[in-house]
Design a protein around this nucleic acid. Structure first.
Lengths: 325, 325
DNA sequence: CTGAAAGCGCTAACAA
DNA sequence: TTGTTAGCGCTTTCAG
């Protein structure tokens, strides 16, 4: 591959001029532009980003750290981030942390060595010290990792309130809340939203804590259905809602006639289940795109107008609830 | 951040010696090793991969090009690739091509500028010329892009045969085959496998071509169910199978009592549907891991023992079929 | 076994 | 407006 010197030679100018041309910096005569453009074209020249990075100490890589891309929550996020990154000339590095602190720290180190321009992190380590002394811009997504780090998420509390209220409006009076792992920010917020909705309403509630896992959810709900009688379930994820649907099916309980269910997340899964799952949808794409935009502003040294942004959730009514009048 | 010169100075040796130490190259006295190790430790030194890349013209980035990471087929693949990449010291760059040739070409160019060590491509452009003159190792996954490019996929034909045969074994005699887009390698192969299974067996078959899209599948199947009478469906993806399940539900047709369905892919979706979807599972993780291993061998300049590998598919029997004796 | 020095390709003063 | 040149941090001959 041709390098900048070849281009300079071919165009009969110095490398400095070529560099200026490439970066639109400083004055260049029209004539110079012309010859350089021609040389670039002829040699099919493409500047080495590596050399540029070494020289400027900047790069066009963005590191995305997620627990596991296989979790259906993350691909859409990643997609959005990738889209805006691409638009701004950045490329995305994908890292799966498995919620493993050591792995995460390792990644941060590795990417630092590779001069990443910034990080977008969906992680939940409270002791996020390894991000602090980094002097690389960071944006936290979905989960707040530190007060000093800009953060963007869905308004989980309000979303859960809306979802639960829908259950109430649909006639449920005896509700099971499948809350997510306590200590996990979004799970706690959703649980709070659930409580907001039922408080003082003379509703009988049952609370279980259930990880975001299909099989476990199915098992837990199967057991619950034998023990108590309920007419509604608020699950704090689509996956656990799907587990609940299966448990109901096995128990011969008809959804939504005997039991109504609302999920949370608005993933594809919810729309592809039979019957279609009513769910509180997060605008994942918007969330990812916004995070990417924030990060890029940070990278460019701009001040953020908002350091914490909450994106509203939206109720998607489908067939697991019967919205009565 | 400290650089190699700082380390050399602190250790009282030359940078060359430090470099040798870092790369385990050439002879170094035990004494030198000791002092350098100490200096590295004290300065918390981490070599700059960028500088190293510039010098060696190699990098530790692997580019993964997929149509869309949101398609549930790809995350698991990406995960596997990332896992082995990480194990070998590489990091993964994620690229969504949207099946758009221009976008794909652009990515290839961009990553070339960033000195990627190799590509893993899941794409289906027959005119894959832009990959040819690249002198960067490439491995194709799921879809064959060129005879000169190593390729790894599931044995789709055999998988489809097994899935269809299961329908036959379960008593179906009147089968709808929802084949994928013709011209697409895997879709064609699966269709061929379906035909292999039914040929000469006095089975009534109906063939429709259906993109891998839930809503479209649902609509098409709804229509079919009104027109003809069938007792089995072979869908060539889980998503379309899910659409078929929903169509059956709307039509009041019981699955599996009146209609049996088998999907293809073995995604999470299949296991989370109610009833659980019988499906032909691809070992996506294995496929991805193997692709990554092949690529890394290529990067290291080794010869591949096999340039084309087919991974067997496995039938996962769940509740949408009634395996009779 | 070790060190000096010449690059890798590009950017950014500084001079002209 | 343009060119010269000194780095960026590391690798790699080539002498010693």
């Amino acid at each position: 591959m041709a390098n900048i010197r070849d281009v300079a030679k071919a165009a009969g100018v110095s490398v400095a001029t070529v560099s200026r041309y490439l970066n639109n910096k400083g004055y260049i005569s029209e004539e110079a532009k012309r010859v350089i453009a021609k040389a670039v074209e002829e040699l099919n020249y493409q500047p080495s980003m590596i050399a540029r990075s070494l020289s400027t100490k900047q790069s066009t890589f963005i590191g995305l750290i997620v627990p596991d891309i296989v979790n259906p929550f993350f691909p859409e996020l990643a997609r959005a981030i990738e889209d805006v990154a691409l638009a701004y000339g950045y490329t995305l590095i994908l890292c799966n942390s498995d919620e493993d602190l050591e792995k995460e720290i390792n990644y941060v180190k590795t990417l630092q060595q590779k001069y990443v321009a910034g990080f977008i992190v969906a992680s939940n380590h409270v002791e996020a010290e390894h991000y602090m002394g980094l002097d690389i811009p960071i944006v936290a997504i979905d989960r707040r990792i530190h007060s000093s780090i800009p953060y963007i998420a869905t308004d989980n509390r309000e979303g859960a309130r809306i979802g639960t209220e829908h259950l109430l409006d649909s006639g449920c009076r005896n509700i099971l809340c499948m809350r997510g792992p306590s200590g996990l920010g979004p799970a706690d917020d959703r649980f709070a939203g659930f409580m907001d909705a039922v408080k003082g309403k003379n509703i009988e509630t049952h609370i279980i804590e259930c990880p975001f896992h299909f099989d476990i959810a199915e098992t837990m709900v199967k057991k619950i259905l034998q023990e108590v009688s309920i007419d509604g379930i608020f699950a704090s994820s689509d996956v656990t809602a799907a587990g609940a649907m299966k448990a109901a099916y096995s128990a011969g309980i008809h959804v939504p006639n005997q039991l109504q269910i609302v999920g949370y997340d608005g993933t594809m899964l919810a729309s592809q289940l039979t019957p279609g799952l009513t769910t509180v949808a997060q605008d994942l794409y918007r969330m990812g795109a916004m995070a990417a935009r924030m990060l890029i502003e940070l990278i460019k040294g701009q001040e953020l107008t908002e350091r914490e942004v909450l994106i509203p959730a939206e109720l998607l009514i489908r067939q697991t609830t019967r919205s009565e009048a």
